[in-house]
Design a protein around this nucleic acid. Structure first.
Length: 432
RNA sequence: GUGGGUGUAGCUCAGUCGGUAGAGCACUGGGUUGUGAUCCCAGGUGUCGCGGGUUCAAGUCCCGUCACUCACCCCA
């Protein structure tokens, strides 16, 4: 094998036809956000390093060992964004969106970067669609955010996932619980690494996957049993609204998120068809984040959904439609016909019909083979005879049926033929 | 960072007891000059991941190394 370049470690390429499925998944998720009134925000993929270390949390794995950080030419420390919320908060504060009508509802889509060891469903560059609702502390908004994520996954066709829900408390009740949990963990014969984690973030020990650790913490105090009255009421209301919305959930009081800013409502969408990396999306409320980044004391709630993993889940469930890249392909038989078909292709494209041609001086057989493989629904067949008679063959490739129409009527004939039958063409047309 | 697995054609892989490589798919052309999917014929491609060792001889055995992959940790 020759010495060729390959993509950086852990970075996926999406090429046809998978790329069409990827784009479909992404646009389906953003569509769910738009349906709930979220406005698009386009943000840089790199930011001041301090934005993430302060926003995401110094104690998180993301900040301590997974960030792509470098000095730019002005010796400024820059980091490729490892998540989306901190950047949205920065933009909201910078552009004073928090001074406008609230809640500010925003969605984003794009790539994120974490320098982890790659494995199934875990990439160093991955894609998320996220939404944030900022400025109003209303449990109905928590429920809305969760419902938007759920609706997005449903719209893709996914059914094999579950929504896990819990509350992490807030500045009133979490510190006391944290001490209680730390006291409990201090009594256990934990290994050194786990002991350090208990110091830094004791909650994280609760969802350790190792059986011996699970057993040790089976009787550990849980946050949900130690919520203050306000948090408890908030949590109960969120659950009530979710039921109103018809969104099914299971409570998982041991769930922990990898980012430090979460408070109160916290949730995760978990899919079983993916291997070890089973989270296809997650989020929650983050009431202290804005102030921590220098803004007002405003609350927020949001999620990040994994586009790559949602795609894997959709493939695992077999719910993706077939994507074709063209509707019509011209098959020229001879040079004069080629010139005419080039012109017709231009007309069809101008009418919004996806059109390709068979290029190169290929044999007729090769031409039809290429037409077949293009995925087009119709082939336009033109040769010397047609040019003389003023007609062109419109062939339905799936059946082999072919009719001659006047060259002057070809555009409307193609439209009529495409309009007949399948709705799959509609789904295909929405992809970028 | 820590473990396991795998590296042979574009892809999926076979390759016995060491004797300088094969199949299927895919691709291209043809099967009487105007019709594709089946069928038939023909065609091309390999630093056998890389480096070293043993041997008359290494894809095959030994050592090292790199890459990919799965899992732990963590997370989308």
């Amino acid at each position: 094998m020759r010495d060729v370049f390959s993509a950086p470690k852990g970075v996926p390429d999406y090429i046809p036809p998978t790329s069409a499925a990827f784009a479909h998944v992404r646009s389906t998720l953003t569509r769910a956000a738009e349906l709930a009134g979220y406005g698009y925000i386009e943000l840089p993929v790199f930011e001041d390093t301090a934005l993430f270390s302060r926003g995401v949390g110094e104690s998180t794995d993301v900040v301590t060992k997974e960030m792509y950080t470098f000095l730019d030419r002005g010796e400024r420390s820059i980091t490729l964004r490892p998540e989306g919320t901190a950047g949205v908060m920065r933009a909201v504060i910078e552009h004073s969106l928090d001074r406008g009508s609230l809640p500010a509802k925003l969605y984003y889509a794009g790539q994120f970067f974490r320098a982890e060891a790659p494995q199934a469903g875990r990439y160093r560059q991955f894609h998320q669609v996220g939404i944030e609702a900022i400025g109003i502390d209303d449990p109905a908004l928590d429920a809305e955010v969760i419902a938007v994520g759920d609706a997005g996954f449903r719209a893709i066709g996914l059914t094999g996932y579950r929504l896990e829900l819990t509350s992490l408390g807030d500045a009133n009740c979490r510190p006391a619980y944290r001490e209680k949990l730390q006291a409990f963990l201090a009594e256990l014969p934990l290994d050194e690494a786990t002991r350090q984690r208990a110091e830094l973030n004791p909650l994280r020990v609760l969802d350790d996957k190792r059986p011996e650790v699970r057993e040790m913490v089976a009787d550990a105090p849980l946050m949900v049993d130690n919520l203050c009255d306000a948090c408890r009421e908030h949590y109960e209301l969120v659950k009530g609204y979710l039921t109103e919305l018809g969104v099914k959930f299971v409570e998982n009081p041991r769930m922990v998120r990898g980012l430090d800013y979460y408070t109160k409502t916290t949730f995760e969408f978990v899919h079983d068809g993916l291997g070890a990396q089973s989270g296809i999306g997650g989020g929650g409320r983050y009431d202290g984040l804005m102030a921590q980044l220098g803004g007002q004391e405003l609350s927020g709630v949001g999620f990040g959904l994994g586009v790559d993993r949602a795609l894997l889940a959709a493939q695992a469930e077999g719910v993706l439609p077939e994507f074709s890249r063209v509707d019509v392909i011209g098959v020229p038989l001879g040079e004069g016909a080629r010139a005419r078909l080039v012109a017709i292709a231009g007309e069809l494209r101008a009418e919004g019909v996806r059109t390709d041609l068979v290029y190169g001086g290929r044999s007729m057989k090769a031409g039809f083979k290429a037409a077949d493989k293009s995925g087009a629904k119709l082939a336009l067949v033109l040769g010397e005879r047609g040019l003389e008679a003023g007609t062109i063959g419109v062939k339905t490739l799936a059946t082999g049926d072919q009719v001659d129409v006047a060259l002057t009527d070809v555009v409307s004939a193609v439209r009529d033929a495409l309009a007949q039958g399948d709705t799959a063409a509609e789904a295909v047309r929405e992809t970028p």
